[in-house]
């Protein structure tokens, strides 16, 4: 199946490359999507990723949310202030 991904804020700093359309196996979850698209660079602090938030087709979602063909996923990590 194919899903689309939009990254916001700091989330874009964790993507391996700018991908908008991603091919995933049927039954994949958001956790699987993250595994496929985020950096594994051990030189960077990955702990912030635990605070990431997700929307699927405009509805709040979690890492265990099962994805479907055509889903639009928002992956965001806000870090703003001042």
């Amino acid at each position: 199946m194919k899903v689309t991904l939009k990254a916001f804020g700091l989330a874009s700093f964790y993507l391996r490359e700018k991908l908008e359309s991603i091919e995933l196996p049927a039954g994949a979850t958001i956790a699987d999507l993250l595994e496929a698209v985020t950096i594994k660079d051990t030189d960077r602090d990955l702990s912030l990723l635990s605070a990431a938030k997700f929307f699927v087709n405009g509805k709040s979602a979690g890492r265990d949310t099962v994805l479907h063909d055509g889903d639009e996923i928002i992956f965001l990590l806000h870090l703003a202030g001042g």
Binding site: F8, G9, L10, A11, R44, D45, I74, L76, L79, G81
Partner: peptide, 27 residues
């Protein structure tokens, strides 16, 4: 150097994540 948050602040300032914050419920 290892902190993507610091990179984001250095590159885009405090408001780089404003869009994300508006969606997440922060703003």
């Amino acid at each position: 150097k290892k902190n993507p948050g610091a990179h984001a602040f250095g590159q885009m300032g405090t408001g780089g994540g404003t869009g994300a914050s508006a969606l997440s419920g922060d703003t």
